[in-house]
């Protein structure tokens, strides 16, 4: 626990902040939205920014700000469910394949390869075609389109870890499979997979928006950024903000998740001290040195 606190202090907060902001907005959405995102108001259609509607309204008179905030909540929820499901499915299948080995592994690897060979959006589209459009079919489709990468990674880590001498040592000391897997192998698998997932979250938000853009994902009137883009396209000349702002929100979220993933990956590598930290450390060192010299100079 103290370890965790210590690592929190050295966290690159400036990189984590955008993601935290997005999460905070999504969680607090019901309190932040000035209007019901789905409420229509035919008295104020396609308005520009005003005190009543800070970012204006769309063709049904719905408040744009409320819809963007509400969209964050919808995107984050869908993304979290898909990511968690894909991660669990991928880690379980991949680890089993790697740990059991033999013919089972060959079959599983082939299945994973088939999923990886097809673009994930194509898989998702095909599955939605079978299940019919809708929120939950989008979730299921995206999960099945997304798990293969995690499965492949997990299997690779498990196979590499199994060869480590400490696994052999654990086995010699009588540890059973469950213990070896959960205590010695799973932590390394998760360490890699979670880092990948943090960067993958952005791509997933984008995929959700894409499906909704095509009318296959989140159904109206639930606010969703991809859907807002379609809705706004027809009124591009009247109110370009209807397209620009949801697009901007989407871009910022994807970029901030990518930065988070990058920061995660880099935090594993030792970094030289730089900039302000470095000059502070040098100052501290010089002070220590002066203090030491003073003590040692006494007769």
């Amino acid at each position: 626990m103290t370890e965790l606190l210590k690592s929190l202090r050295t966290w690159p907060w400036h990189i984590v902040a955008p993601v935290l902001l997005f999460v905070a907005v999504a969680v607090l959405a019901p309190w932040l939205t000035p209007y019901d995102p789905a409420a229509q108001d035919y008295m104020s259609i396609l308005q520009g920014p005003s005190w009543a509607h800070w970012l204006g309204t769309d063709y049904l008179g719905r408040d744009l700000l409320s819809r963007i905030i509400g969209g964050a909540r919808v995107s984050l929820t869908a993304m979290s469910i898909v990511l968690l499901a894909a991660l669990i499915l991928g880690v379980v299948v991949g680890s089993l394949a790697g740990y059991i080995g033999g013919r089972f592994e060959v079959v599983m690897i082939s299945a994973i390869d088939i999923f990886l060979a097809l673009p994930s959006l194509v898989i998702a589209l095909a599955l939605i075609g079978i299940m019919g459009p809708g929120y939950w079919s989008m979730i299921v489709a995206l999960t099945l389109a997304w798990w293969a990468n995690y499965a492949r990674m997990s299997r690779a880590v498990v196979v590499a870890e199994l060869r480590q001498p400490y696994i052999e040592a654990a086995r010699i000391m009588g540890a059973n499979h469950l213990h070896i897997f959960s205590r010695h192998i799973l932590p390394s698998v998760l360490a890699l997979v979670v880092v990948y997932a943090s960067a993958d979250a952005g791509a997933l938000v984008l995929a959700i928006a894409t499906l909704s853009f095509l009318g296959l994902g989140v159904e109206p009137p639930t606010p969703e950024w991809g859907q807002m883009l379609v809705d706004g396209m027809g009124y591009l000349e009247d109110n370009p903000a209807l397209v620009i702002l949801p697009g901007l929100a989407l871009t910022l979220v994807v970029v901030s998740f990518n930065l988070l993933g990058e920061a995660f990956a880099l935090s594993k590598v030792p970094r030289p001290a730089r900039g302000l930290t470095l000059s502070r450390r040098r100052r501290d060192r010089a002070k220590e040195e002066a203090a030491r010299a003073q003590v040692e100079a006494r007769p």
Partner: peptide, 11 residues
């Protein structure tokens, strides 16, 4: 020689 990395300084 002073080394500075992460959150340690080593002489």
């Amino acid at each position: 020689i002073d080394l500075y990395a992460g959150n340690v300084s080593v002489r």
